[in-house]
């Protein structure tokens, strides 16, 4: 994939869009005696890319898993498009999940299925689609990530970068309104990482999704983030645009950027 002009997310004017796609209030979670998230408050605006930075073990993945319902928080409120997730019944929760997409750190492609079956899988549980419509959606999703040739391959035949792209295509095939990316560039070389970061940005523009991107890759944060948060000791310790965070006078933040 080539990019004529370097893409970079522009900061969103906070007054331009007041509608929140997701809101988190006083989120807390502990595993045994270890308090991983102490008091998390965040708002994701519609059409915004929000990057959450943090060191390994700072609770980034736990946070994102709480947001999609894979981990149950001990305290706090998560409001997804105006609905409190904790009050939703199973069926409503499933409907809410149809509006979200999650790209896992290891892509989580289904090993026993071909790429085509992997992409068809999320569509099967939703509205009844004809075979032709499903094929068209699969081909469109693979075309978006530039991997139409891999349609009949097995996940084991693909490289790490290709698996990430297929994972992204599988997530985007059901046209989610909110995307969650868990370490999208981990384990990839710098060129592939940049390609994935640009792809995230392209997809945001194409489908107008709101996204939360969990990463410790500063380059990915720079390219994709409209706004950046830094998670430290279970709380959000800093917030701003990438440039604001980078130019911060706080010693611990500048150390973070020097590493």
């Amino acid at each position: 994939m080539t990019h004529a002009a370097p893409l970079k997310a522009k900061p969103i004017n906070p007054t331009a869009n007041t509608e929140n796609a997701l809101e988190v209030e006083h989120l807390q979670i502990a595993f045994g005696p270890l308090q991983v998230l102490k008091d998390i408050n965040l708002k994701l605006k519609k059409g915004e890319n929000l990057v959450v930075l943090g060191r390994s073990g700072s609770g980034k993945s736990v946070l994102i898993k709480c947001l999609v319902g894979l981990n149950e928080p001990d305290e706090g409120k998560i409001t997804l498009q105006g609905k409190d997730v904790s009050t939703l019944k199973d069926q409503d929760l499933e409907l809410a999940r149809q509006k979200i997409g999650f790209l896992f750190q290891g892509s989580a492609l289904y090993d026993s299925m071909t790429i085509r079956e992997n992409l068809e899988f999320p569509l099967m549980g939703k509205i009844k689609l004809k075979e032709q419509e499903i094929n068209a959606l699969v081909e469109e999703a693979l075309g978006n990530v530039g991997l139409l040739d891999a349609i009949d391959k097995m996940p084991s035949e693909l490289s790490g970068g290709m698996r990430k792209r297929i994972g992204l295509a599988r997530t985007l095939i059901s046209k989610p309104e909110i995307m969650f990316y868990d370490e999208p560039t981990t384990g990839l070389d710098s060129i592939t990482s940049r390609e994935i970061s640009h792809l995230i940005l392209e997809m945001q523009k194409k489908y107008n999704t709101s996204s939360i991107i969990i990463t410790h890759d500063l380059e990915c944060a720079r390219i994709t983030g409209n706004r950046v948060l830094i998670l430290k000791d279970g709380i959000i310790a800093a917030e701003g645009t990438y440039e604001e965070i980078k130019n911060s006078k706080e010693e611990w933040i500048s150390t973070y950027f020097q590493e």
Partner: peptide, 21 residues
């Protein structure tokens, strides 16, 4: 082994978030 491998590689979680049971 198959299900355990799916569990540890987050494939089961991936099914859950894609609104399949």
């Amino acid at each position: 082994a198959e299900l355990a491998s799916m569990k540890v590689t987050e494939q089961i979680d991936a099914m859950r978030v894609s609104a399949r049971k």
